[in-house]
Design a protein around this nucleic acid. Structure first.
Lengths: 349, 349
DNA sequence: CTGTTAGCGCGTTCAC
DNA sequence: GTGAACGCGCTAACAG
């Protein structure tokens, strides 16, 4: 059944995709009935539904959702923007979002910024052009234009992984600074006094800066020196950079007792480098990370770190989003949700 | 300037998003002119363009691309489906795609399957509903229905990370089996004779099965025993599972000389577990991985592995896609592109 | 350089 | 349970 003398038409692969009208014609019904048959919980007689299903299979028809959403004014997806997909903390958050969206008829559209707010701005615009029903962001730092677009988009906006002073809309996160303070306090209570910090150079990674801020604050409060800070590399700092940074730290302050790292990844690099140099961890130097990645529980010695509820952040963000979208429940969800974090003490400290 | 007695209209946040017509009216032009002003390389006088830009800013207008693509019949995005976002091999591929798409006006829509073909099928359908201009898949194993949808979609399809016997359309990949064979041969040449293999239980991870197949084939060819295979856990097998698997292997075949793992992640888990038990790597047991993840170059001892051109796979897949879409060049791109892999020998063997 | 007309493929709304 | 008219917001094609 080739259409006409279209030249390119053959048997399948090429040619225009069939439309709902093609299906309707083949099934001997109107397009409207096909539309109904494709939608859950609409009333179509069993016989016609079968004819339609058959026509759909024969034609290989796939619904054109973009056309549909233009008409229904519902695009059926939410956007999420994370710094990096190759980071299990953030991909856990993405997983939390996906899981919480299951069964809501909403799909996740994921974008990643490589830790660049400029790239974030581009992504925000690209996403908004496709009219998501809500948007989930990582962190509270955006370009002015990005922020303006979000405010004017008329959709729920959730900032995560942070507690912004002036949130755009809703928030699901925790204070990175407070978490690092807790880690310092915990280790100080064990008797450590000479702390070092390993993190990235720039303020580009806002969460990294906040962690460093917490490090300094806690030490100052405890009356301990807080100047042993190695800033090294563009975020996200890699394992290898953690290795290099710990070397710098030991050259500069050889009597450092414990090195806190902006993430488990750099902490792991530091740990391996120390072993390579014949140092015993934690006897010669203790090391701690941040994020409780899989590697922290598996390396040798196992790594002390901060566990963050990455998955829960995603779940709760998506929940808050769907509640707002569906205007469900008697009242709006809370604007701010604080998520848990805790110190996980292991053998590296 | 509130519209009418709409009740909900106020000043910003609430209310319907402005349309192109709103912008046009405010700028004193027709919608078509606004459309042109928004598109690169169209001729609009400087004065009107400025008025339009101003109106856009005042209204906070963002183009509705889904409406536009319905009309222009170009959605401006390509879909890519990978098994997991939390896996640097695949996220490197995603990065390669993103980079190659830069400047083409095409955006990436990413989905992940958690290594499930059923989930892949759902994703394929969800993606096709939004009418991507091309689609990139990981691997050559799909459900029959998934395959049919892809064949009938009328868009270029690229299968990656594999060399399927019967490709749907185009391919950018390598033979996982051949890569593992090469690793076995390289290590056999160094004198190893008693090889073990650590991988997942099921055939769900097709690349994992292919690697195991290569392991067995190479050993049989060399006349060495090929039965020391530990199958453990659902893919993707984690670091922790690698640790458990190596314990099983050593219990069952204590004289194993070298353990090859389905990926660097499980290899790393095995490595750490051996150290925890006081075994020296590679003296007591050698370990090798697959994928050349960051961790392989950073752990101690550094890990022997297979380096795969993950980023290049993404880049070339996207290139092939854009070439096909734009019908550019005098001829179609090659159907099959084989990418490089190589053994990286380090201290763990 | 700019405007007009028509229609992309579907869902809403109403009628039957 | 089914169909017809209409319009979602935008752009192609043509006219001026």
């Amino acid at each position: 059944m080739t259409k006409t003398a279209d030249g390119k038409m053959g048997d399948g692969k090429t040619g225009e995709a069939p439309t709902m009208n093609d299906v309707a014609r083949r099934a001997g019904v109107s397009a409207m009935t096909v539309s109904r048959a494709l939608k859950e919980g609409s009333h179509v007689s069993k016989a016609t539904r079968e004819r339609i299903t058959q026509a759909i299979n024969e034609l290989g028809y796939v619904l054109d959702q973009s056309a549909g959403s233009l008409s229904s004014r519902r695009t059926g997806f939410v956007a999420a923007i994370i710094p990096s997909i190759n980071n299990s903390n953030f991909s856990d958050t993405a997983r939390g979002i996906t899981d919480a969206l299951e069964g809501t008829g909403l799909q996740l559209l994921l974008g990643y910024t490589n830790y660049s707010v400029e790239r974030e701005e581009e992504l925000i615009e690209a996403m908004l052009r496709r009219r998501p029903e809500g948007i989930i962001l990582t962190g509270g730092a955006h370009t002015p234009r990005g922020r303006r677009m979000l405010e004017q988009a008329g959709i729920p906006v959730i900032e995560t992984w942070d507690t912004p002073a002036d949130p755009i809309d809703k928030v699901v996160g925790f204070s990175n600074g407070a978490a690092m303070e807790l880690l310092v306090e915990t280790l100080a209570a064990k008797g450590y006094e000479r702390f070092g910090y390993i993190g990235g150079t720039t303020a580009r990674d806002t969460r990294g800066s906040q962690r460093r801020g917490g490090f300094v604050r806690a030490l100052e409060r405890l009356g301990l020196p807080s100047d042993r800070v190695i800033s090294f590399g563009v975020p996200p700092i890699s394992m290898e950079q953690g290795a290099q940074a710990v070397v710098s730290m030991l050259e500069r302050w050889p009597d450092t007792q414990v090195a806190l790292c902006v993430s488990d990844l750099s902490a792991f690099g530091a740990l391996m480098e120390c072993q390579r140099r014949g140092m015993k961890v934690p006897d010669d130097i203790a090391i701690a990370g941040f994020g409780d990645y899989e590697i922290a529980a598996c390396c040798h010695p196992r790594m002390t770190t901060i566990n963050v509820d990455c998955y829960g952040i995603g779940r709760q963000a998506a929940l808050k989003l769907t509640q707002t979208i569906q205007g469900m429940a008697t009242e709006e969800p809370e604007r701010i949700t604080l998520t848990d974090f805790r110190v996980v003490e292991r053998e590296s400290t």
